[in-house]
Design a protein around this nucleic acid. Sequence first.
DNA 1: CATGCGTGGCT
DNA 2: TAGCCAAGCAT
Length: 426
Amino acid sequence: MHTERNHDRYFSSELLNWYDVNKRDLPWRRSRDPYHIWVSEIMLQQTRVDTVIPYFHRFIERFPTIEALADAPEDDVLKCWEGLGYYSRARNLQSAARQITEQYGGVMPSGKEEVAGLKGVGPYTAGAIRSIAFNIPAAAVDGNVMRVLSRYFLIEDDIMKIKTRTRMEELVLTLVPEGRASDFTQALMELGALICTPKSPKCLVCPVMEDCAGRLEGKEESLPVKTKAKPPRPEHRLAAIVEGTGVHEGKILIRKRPAAGLLAGMWELPHIEVPSGLSAVSTKGAAELSDVSAVSTKGSAAASDTAYVHSGAVVVPPENAAAVIGLTDGLLAEGIPARPIGHYMDAEHTFSHIQWKMSVYRCVWQEEPESLSGLQAAETAAAYEAGETNDYRWIDAGDMERYAFPNVFIRILTSYFSKRDAAGSR
DNA sequence: CATGCGTGGCT
DNA sequence: TAGCCAAGCAT
């Protein structure tokens, strides 16, 4: 029978022995540069290893040092982060790089207060940087670690509670073997990633299975205890592909999102939310609109079996009329005098907390603008959402590499440009 | 302490 | 397929 003390030593030494043999060869493990460790830890927050690897390589190549990151334009950093999600991570990372450049001469500090004081660095990441990069005995308790510990020590507290994580941090500190903080932190997470997985844990090949209280109680599948997240709330949105005329012929209009909140600082197609009372974005109706949009200008839509109403110059099925009027008015309220000329596609995008159901319309500019000055001067130009965004650009396919877009807009834009260019070359 | 904040892979 | 989930942090 193990005493409490031997119990702990058994766990730590078996875990380390296993890690020495089974650890993966990951890019950030080929370096002890605290900057590399730091970047990898930020990228790995809520994100899978396989997803992170290519981003990590590109990021380090593009911003080789903390100072290079500090000196870069924010748009460049966001572009490098494009598609990775949780974009505040990128903005906070650069903010912290500037912090380190100014306060610590460009050298990552190792002190607890200093590291934890960096923007975007919370309790987990602070512990990870200090233990992994500096081999300091510090707790880095993430989802993996909480899963491993809750099973091994049969801890049935809800891991969504802060208190549970704090308790586990204290527990970890009692387990760190002398002089091996770096390996121990990584070993704990590696076990969670490879063996002690959320579903179907591989107990039979686990190095500490003999003493795992959770497994001995048959509870390995039901641990950790975790309150489940609320499902995302649906949001109907109408997006516009505004096609330029005159000097902007062949280009479409994009705008920059506000500096705070959802997708902060990213570029996007202009779009508005459809009030939830207005069930305007019927997929069926949208498809019908798409079918008739080509003939609508000839005024022959009345020949169709379905009854259509006129909303401005575009012919739409009744259930879409309100939506298209809403889009026209919504764009105008932002100073964009555009007119929908037909449905282009539907797109769904699910965030952690919101599900966008987008209906995308091709639109034409109603004037012959020489520039955006008319747009910006428009008296009706309202603040975009609450963010006061007034940054618009006309872009073509080649310009896409210069702006950072959320994935949903990349999908729409890529589809639009490729389809249009294919049609144009015929 | 609860909520806002992305995305893609898995079952 | 439609949830679930994955190396969290800021507020």
